[in-house]
């Protein structure tokens, strides 16, 4: 059985090449720190039986993304699962599970880049979970009536997790100078406001099913014991920052571009490199046209060398194989 990744790949898995290296690196650091905290918290509160539970649920969330329903014009809605993971497992294990899902998507199926994985983990596993948890627990406390409260807060949590994650994704693209902020952020927001409705509807459907069959899984007692004030705080902060800053950022794209240029350590690296080999040290290359030509020649020589070596290695190994036969 051949696996086909979701027919319309979720527009949120950033491939490599679209984020500048410093953006990728910073989000790698942030995600690594949060994941470390999540792993520590999880292994403290963890029962032995939760390890296989997390592994199998991660597989279910990944495979569950194949569950889709047609919306209109060949597009389809499907599940991303951060909100369901939070409701079933609680926030910290959900971070671990979603990180695993996003990592395997990148490592095994090239859905999202490897260098961009830190940013993708941040958007889908950290923001997705924190926002779901914040919205879900606040709303579930406000609407006490049992089935309705659960469904409404589940829907809203799922929708907002997608929406806020998309805003973060748009901002990362804009800061990297890949996509102009006044286009990237509104476009991401608009598309994912719709995708989020699909996510919300599937999440609600899943919750009604769980209520009818295994209501014991949804008893909030496990989560009530430990209230995650930290996550609530950070989640609200992220939501406020992204929801209120994004319109500002997209109406003032110059500001973001300025940030992108200021932080481009590539530029600094280049300047530093030119200082190592100042112009007068290589008198032949002071002429920029000549420099380009020389660079081109060096490039051609290197390409030929690599191609030649490859061909030779290939010839030798196939000769060896023929000998073996």
């Amino acid at each position: 059985m051949l696996f086909s990744p979701p027919s319309s790949p979720p527009a949120m898995h950033i491939p490599d090449g679209f984020l500048s290296v410093w953006v990728s690196a910073s989000f790698w650091i942030i995600s690594a720190i949060v994941l470390t905290i999540a792993l520590r918290k999880t292994s403290h509160s963890l029962e032995k039986r939760q390890v296989p539970l997390m592994g199998v649920l991660a597989a279910a969330i990944f495979a569950g993304q194949m569950l889709n329903f047609s919306v209109a014009g060949g597009t389809s809605g499907h599940l991303l699962g951060a909100a369901l993971a939070v409701i079933l497992l609680g926030p910290w294990p959900a971070v671990v599970v979603m990180t695993s899902v996003v990592s395997v998507q990148a490592l095994l199926f090239q859905d999202g880049g490897i260098l961009a994985l830190g940013a993708n983990i941040f958007n889908m596993a950290i923001i997705g979970v924190f926002i779901s948890y914040t919205v879900f627990s606040v709303l579930a406390r406000l609407i006490k009536k049992r089935p309705i409260g659960l469904l409404v807060s589940g829907f809203t949590a799922a929708w907002s997790s997608i929406f806020v994650a998309a805003l973060a994704c748009g901002l990362q693209l804009a800061i990297s100078g890949t996509s102009p902020a006044n286009i990237a952020i509104p476009a991401m927001a608009a598309i994912h406001a719709l995708i989020g409705i699909g996510e919300g509807l599937i999440t609600t459907g899943a919750l009604t099913f769980l209520l009818a069959t295994r209501a014991d899984l949804l008893k909030p007692e496990g989560q009530a014991k430990v209230s995650h004030k930290g996550i609530l705080g950070v989640g609200s902060l992220i939501a406020v920052l992204l929801v209120f800053l994004s319109p500002f950022a997209s109406s003032h794209p110059d500001g973001l571009e300025w940030v992108a240029e200021q932080n481009s350590f590539l530029q600094t690296a280049r300047e530093a490199f030119y200082n190592i080999i100042p112009d007068y040290a290589l008198p032949g290359i002071s002429n920029s046209a000549l420099a380009t030509i020389i660079a081109g020649l060096v490039g051609i020589v290197v390409v030929f060398a690599i191609a030649y070596l490859t061909a030779r290695a290939e010839k030798r190994s196939s000769a060896i194989e023929r000998l073996r036969d």
């Binding site: 569950l67 999440t203 609600t204 459907g205 899943a206 099913f209 769980l210 069959t213």
Partner: peptide
């Protein structure tokens, strides 16, 4: 969407 949601619930 509800049918798909129920399928997701049953999968979980």
């Amino acid at each position: 969407a509800r049918v798909t949601g129920n399928m997701a619930g049953s999968l979980f």
